[in-house]
């Protein structure tokens, strides 16, 4: 499998996860989206040197992954694989900010390293929150939630089309790339001269396909609106879910639990 195949396989797998049937899967997608958003805002609202205060937030992904029956290892790998920008930018912090602000067993730790650790921790938290939403909900249901949350319909509808044809087109792209690599003997990326007609043909085929899809839609009475039967309802459990997490995030935001806990323990041993 080449890179393209792996990526679309990945998306497909996330969708399979979303097909699960747990309490969290059944929850109204709006509740999950809003909670994830609150979580992310709470996490990023911490100051740049916050490290310990962020640790308790790990409870959110831990609970969601466990209750949703999602595979820890897979999600963790996904989080680790996708971090170039944050790390590249974050790594400058230890270089720029070298003042020692903490001593552990005689080793001085600079502010830069702490803020770098903070960036990495933020990264893990925010990324896993996003991945969890999609793995528990599925893309199309997220789209549905978006319409219900007031996102303009043309945008959501084309988003759904995009998702539908993403698999078809990555497949097509993969076949073209494979066909090319089977007939070349240098392992590297393709040359610009090959790349342009390949992409060009893919684009032409895409435009033709769009035309055929449009035709298929017209044949079934399409007149500019995409009708769908779906109902979403907010029950008590959705309200409880969002409120519960919101309260917890607020508490974790205001009280530095690890420090509290730590000073309790160290006091006890003193």
């Amino acid at each position: 499998m080449n890179n393209i195949g792996r990526n679309s396989f990945d998306i497909g797998y996330m969708d399979t996860l979303a097909g699960g049937d747990s309490y969290l899967h059944r929850l109204d997608p709006r509740a999950k989206l809003i909670t994830a958003f609150l979580f992310i805002v709470a996490v990023v609202s911490f100051g740049r040197y916050a490290v310990f205060a962020l640790i308790p937030f790990l409870v959110y992904p831990a609970v969601m992954i466990s209750l949703g029956g999602l595979p820890y290892g897979y999600l963790l790998k996904k989080v680790l694989v996708v971090s170039p920008f944050a790390i590249v930018i974050g790594i400058f912090n230890p270089l720029m900010d070298r003042e020692i602000v903490m001593q552990i067993g005689g080793i001085g730790i600079s502010g830069g390293w702490i803020s770098f650790a903070s960036i990495l921790l933020r990264f893990v938290l925010t990324v896993s929150a996003a991945l969890i939403v999609i793995a528990l909900t599925g893309f199309n249901t997220v789209c549905l939630a978006l319409t219900k949350l007031g996102v303009p319909r043309p945008f959501v509808v084309q988003l759904m089309f995009f998702y539908r044809y993403l698999f078809v087109l990555t497949d097509e792209a993969e076949r073209m790339v494979r066909a090319r690599s089977l007939r070349t003997f240098d392992a590297g990326a393709m040359r610009f001269k090959t790349f342009v007609p390949l992409i060009g043909h893919l684009l032409l085929r895409t435009l033709d396909r769009a035309e055929r899809i449009y035709l298929a839609m017209r044949c079934r009475g399409f007149d500019g609106r995409i009708p769908m039967i779906r109902s979403l309802r907010i029950h008590f459990r959705e309200v409880a879910f969002v409120t519960g997490w919101a309260v917890l995030f607020t508490v974790l935001r205001c009280y530095n639990i690890p420090l509290l806990l730590g000073s309790l323990v160290t006091e006890a041993f003193r």
């Binding site: 199309n140 789209c143 759904m160 089309f161 998702y163 539908r164 044809y165 078809v168 396909r209 055929r212 899809i213 035709l215 298929a216 839609m217 995409i226 769908m228």
Partner: peptide
């Protein structure tokens, strides 16, 4: 249609 992917466009 010949290509079912063109015909099945909904989620």
């Amino acid at each position: 249609f010949q290509n079912s992917d063109d015909q099945l466009f909904m989620p």
